[in-house]
Amino acid sequence: MQPEKRIALGLTVAVFLATWIAPIWPVEQALHSSLTVVGLCWLWRHDQRWPMRTIDFALICGFIAVHCVAARWLYSNLPYDEWVRALTGWSPQQAFGWQRNHADRLIHLMFGVCFTPGLREHMQQRWPRLSPRQAFALALMLIMCASLVYEWLEWGIALTMSPEAAEAYNGQQGDLWDAHADMLLATLGALLAWPRRVEASCAAAAEAA
Rank of each mutant, 00 (worst) to 15 (best):
Q2R: 10
A8V: 06
L11N: 07
F16Y: 13
I24T: 05
P26W: 09
L31A: 09
H32L: 09
S33A: 03
S33K: 10
V37W: 01
G39I: 01
W44N: 02
D47E: 00
R49I: 14
W50D: 00
P51S: 06
M52A: 10
M52C: 03
R53T: 02
I55S: 13
D56S: 08
F57A: 02
F63G: 14
A65R: 09
C68D: 15
V69G: 14
R72N: 10
R72H: 12
W73G: 09
S76V: 11
S76Q: 11
Y80R: 13
D81C: 07
L87Q: 14
T88E: 08
S91F: 12
G97P: 02
H102W: 13
A103F: 05
L106R: 09
L109K: 05
M110G: 11
G112V: 12
V113D: 14
T116D: 13
P117W: 07
E121Q: 05
H122K: 14
Q124G: 15
Q125S: 07
P128R: 12
P128Y: 06
P132T: 03
A139M: 09
A139D: 03
L140E: 07
L142M: 10
M144Q: 09
L148C: 06
G156Q: 08
I157R: 08
I157W: 07
M161W: 04
M161K: 08
S162D: 02
A165H: 03
A166P: 03
A166S: 03
A166N: 03
G171F: 01
G171W: 01
Q173G: 03
A181F: 02
D182R: 03
L188D: 07
G189I: 04
W194G: 02
A209Y: 10
